[in-house]
Amino acid sequence: MSFLDYDFMQRALIAAVLTGLAAPAVGTYLVQRRLALLGDGLGHVALTGVAIGLLTGWAPVWTSVAVAILGALAIDYVRAKGRASADVALAMLFYGGIAGGVLITGLAGSTAATLNTYLFGSITTVSQDDLWVVAVLAAVVIALAVGLAPQLFAVCQDEEFARVSGLPVRLYSMLIAVMAAVTVTVAMRTVGLLLVSALMVVPVATAQQLTRSFRTTFALAMVLGVVPSLGGVVFSYYVDVAPGASIVVGSLIGFVLAWPAGSLLRRRRARRSVNGEDPRVTGAHVPTERHPHQHDPECGHPTVEHGDHTDYLHDGHLHAAHDRHYDEH
């Protein structure tokens, strides 16, 4: 395979793997929280960061990560305030991000072609320095997404319940926003700022066609992120198109293929599991398993009034005398 002989392709492929893992990992939490479009907005905002880099001569990877994080914190703040106008405020932030990006790029004297490499990715532009930054950031994002999975799951599943559990919900909420912002920067060189959101959302959507647990959705989404990322970069080597486009089209093809399989799977599962209720809690007659002793007021098990008889609290179950055995009550 000749493309592996090129240094730029090696770097592009490494960046693709990191992006393909990090984007769906964060994306799973965004989708769970029903914030699928957050990545899109952050991509717009990060563009202003790139432009600032072009204007000042600082590395765009740093300026974009800084601006994207600021944008993420602003979005999270507006969301937490929960005002009715939050929707419009966010929209304006997104427009401002892309307009500011184009404006400042123009001031910096850069061309639309330069901007395009950030918007849709470019396999030839991943420098050695970029790769280091991308690798460290992606590793941190993936480590947090996996290591804090129980906490992030709880916050994204039910924010109010998480707060009553004593979790620092605002902190985790900001963390997710910042992780998304960092991922946007990680993905900037491969899939590009305008299409990064697709790599956060589409693999998750594909995975959940086939899964029923969060854990497998999370893992499968990461696999489904890496495959089109690598494929897209290789495709862009042979056919001169922006890698962002081929990566996203690739992952959408995955979704289209998974969809019929998913609906078949769901129908089969639905048929299999209609009546699996535990009769103990639905009132049917359930004798307890063999019982070592006769419950009486001296047996040491707490007693509970139940209508016109007494139940005994035994190992988390309530036992009621019935003929010569005990019923679970």
């Binding site: 799973t28 029923r212 959705t217």
Partner: peptide, 10 residues
Amino acid sequence: GGVPATVREV
């Protein structure tokens, strides 16, 4: 939520 989760996970 927006992503599948089992009873045990929730």
